[in-house]
Amino acid sequence: MATTHSRTAARFMISPSVLLLLGWMIVPLSMTIWFSFQSYNLLSPGTEEWIGFLNYEFFLTDPAFFAALSNTLLLVLGVLVITIIGGTLLALLLDQPVFGQGVVRILVIAPFFVMPTVSALVWKNMFMNPVNGLFAHAAKAMGLEPFDFLAHAPLFSVTLIVAWQWLPFATLILLTALQSLDQDQLEAAEMDGAGPFSRFIYIVVPHLSRAITVVILIQTIFLLSIFAEILVTTNGGPGYASTNITYLVYAQSLLQFDVGGGSAGGIIAVILANIVAFFLMRMIGKNLEA
């Protein structure tokens, strides 16, 4: 009797969240799908008409789309490589006994709490600026010509900034995983004559593989939607050199007011994210049973 009672109460308690999220997902998403089949520009209201897959055709055959797609992939991959290799090394370092361990941890984690617009502007002006940036000063001190990072290597520069922000996240997760490693197993391997390198390859790496997968999947979800860093550093340029899909859709819809084209781009972004999400959900779902 108590069970029936609490089950009804439970349904009642869960429903607000479910209804809100359902609304948040279905209403705007179906609007985006609807718009994506329309010729609809905010500058010429009243001329909306159904044009089938024409928006998709334009978006997918636009050279900007291919630039944005490859930039998106390069950005995600670049940041993943830097954060996972750097994060593993840092986690191994921070797992050792160190004087002032707490303080070092705090220093390493700090970039994660810096808001994206601040880190992008600080890097852009105070480090990468070709006249007054610290990198320019360093280059001059070594007798080299200062390099204009954001003009000549825009995507690489954005990758560096984003990697700096996400390195703490990877480090923290890998460190947490490392701390649950069974020390006896390592000692046993050492006694059996395994060197530091083979202990790392055969014991540490397999132990970390789950955490690394989690880092890859979660970072990918966030990295596919990088926006603020591009907006304040390069505005996607020069040309389309640092435009990713998120920025392209933003430019199409809110700068050119092309609702139809922007919506088609948005749906394509949703499909891309879904491919990643599929794998992430399977992993987390498995964990839920354990």
Partner: peptide
Amino acid sequence: MLSTKMLPPVGVLIPI
């Protein structure tokens, strides 16, 4: 619920 978090914001930018 988790899957709604994976919806990229540009997918719903225009309607919102």
